[in-house]
Amino acid sequence: MKYTTKNLMRGLFTALISGIMVKAQVGAEPLKIAYSDWPGWIAWEIGIQKGWFKEAGVDVEFAWMDYVESMDAYVAGKVDAVTMTNGDALVTGGTGKPSVAIIINDYSNGNDMIVGAPGIDSLKDLKGKKIGLEEGFVEHLLLLKGLEKLGMSPDDVTIVNTPTNETPQVLQAKAVDAIGAWQPNSGQALKALPGSKPIFSSADVPGIIYDVLAVSPESLDTRKADWAKVVTVWYKISDFIRDEENLDETLEILSGRVGVKPEEYEHFLKGTYILSLEEALERWEDKEGLGSIYGSTRIANEFNLKFEVYDKSQDAAKYLDPSLTKAFAASQKSE
């Protein structure tokens, strides 16, 4: 065979998938992934239900958990990987167990929001007011970025530390003037108090929150070929979701996982920007600012240090590995 560039690229990725270029894999245990209630992570259900992992030749076991519980399971070594935000990956690493993101599933595009009580129409209206949110979590960072855009100081508001799943009740009780939460909690808050409204959201600062598949370095090192297959399945899922002809089936599968009506779930899906392969490659470029997961993760690290989420700065680059996505993209171009 004549070894053209295309043949070489295809051959390299095939070798990666088959394990020729990686260390010997350990046993035949399924890869264990903890995932939770977020559209970009529930999206894995499409691959599960359609049997795409089996078609790709990889055995994967998905464990459905609450978000914090899923991170705890990862730190405890009960799973090989977990779906997390890029900022929370730093937290689990800085306080317990590092991970490596191999897939950028999406970025939040409105599902994370600051919800104001009736009469609160903008962040400016919150000066001197109380905001219920979970300190040190992504909604706290979202609020600070919103205040920064308006030239306001964090001291202009009072944070009431509130578990995210309790924010709807706190807003309904009028114990605070606004809350910070992600879906489905933000949506529940809007329903709980008539007249409440979103006054700032992740759609106003795209890239402030990236959602990823974070893998343990040990599992990635010993089973890279299997994780490469998971990457191929993810982009099959991404293509499926982004095709409008598949919208009804997508909504049926995703809404079924959380027990809501498909028409109700469509709003959640719109608030999550599922990245195409080409868009993911752009976000994988190491740049400053929110248009890069590297820049976004560095901003999250600064936030975590400022609020003493952990006491030692984390190197964003050590938490990010675009190699499998880039290898897959190269193989696609060669076909």
Rank of each mutant, 00 (worst) to 15 (best):
M1F: 14
T5H: 15
R10H: 14
L16M: 10
G19F: 08
V22S: 14
Q25S: 13
Q25F: 12
V26T: 12
A28K: 15
Y35H: 05
Y35C: 01
S36N: 13
D37C: 09
D37H: 10
G40R: 09
I42M: 05
I42D: 00
W44F: 10
I46F: 06
I48N: 10
Q49E: 14
Q49T: 08
E55H: 09
G57Q: 04
A63N: 14
M65H: 12
E69D: 13
E69N: 07
M71Q: 15
D72R: 12
V75L: 05
K78E: 14
V79I: 13
A81T: 02
T83N: 04
A89V: 12
L90C: 00
G93M: 14
T95S: 14
G96F: 10
K97V: 09
V100L: 07
V100D: 07
A101Y: 03
I102R: 00
I103K: 02
D106L: 07
D112V: 15
I114A: 00
V115Q: 03
G116V: 11
L123D: 01
D125S: 09
L126D: 03
K127S: 08
K129Q: 10
K129I: 09
K129E: 09
G132E: 07
G132R: 08
G136E: 03
E139R: 01
L144G: 10
L144I: 10
G151M: 08
S153K: 10
I159H: 03
T162P: 06
T167W: 01
K174G: 11
K174F: 12
V176S: 11
A178Q: 08
I179Q: 00
G180A: 07
Q183C: 15
P184A: 14
P184V: 09
S186P: 02
K191N: 05
S196H: 07
K197H: 13
K197T: 15
P198T: 05
A203C: 01
P206R: 02
I208G: 13
D211C: 14
P217F: 09
D221I: 09
R223P: 06
A225I: 11
T232A: 07
W234L: 00
Y235N: 10
I241P: 04
D243G: 00
E245T: 13
N246V: 00
N246P: 02
T250I: 02
L251W: 02
E252L: 05
G256P: 08
V258S: 05
V260C: 04
E266A: 14
E266G: 09
H267I: 13
T272C: 02
S276T: 11
S276I: 08
E279H: 02
E279P: 00
A280Y: 11
L281W: 04
E285L: 09
E285K: 15
D286S: 15
E288V: 11
I293S: 08
S296Q: 04
S296G: 07
R298L: 01
R298N: 06
R298F: 02
I299P: 12
L305V: 03
L305E: 02
Y310A: 01
Q314H: 07
Q314I: 12
A317R: 11
K318P: 10
Y319P: 10
D321N: 12
S323P: 06
A327R: 03
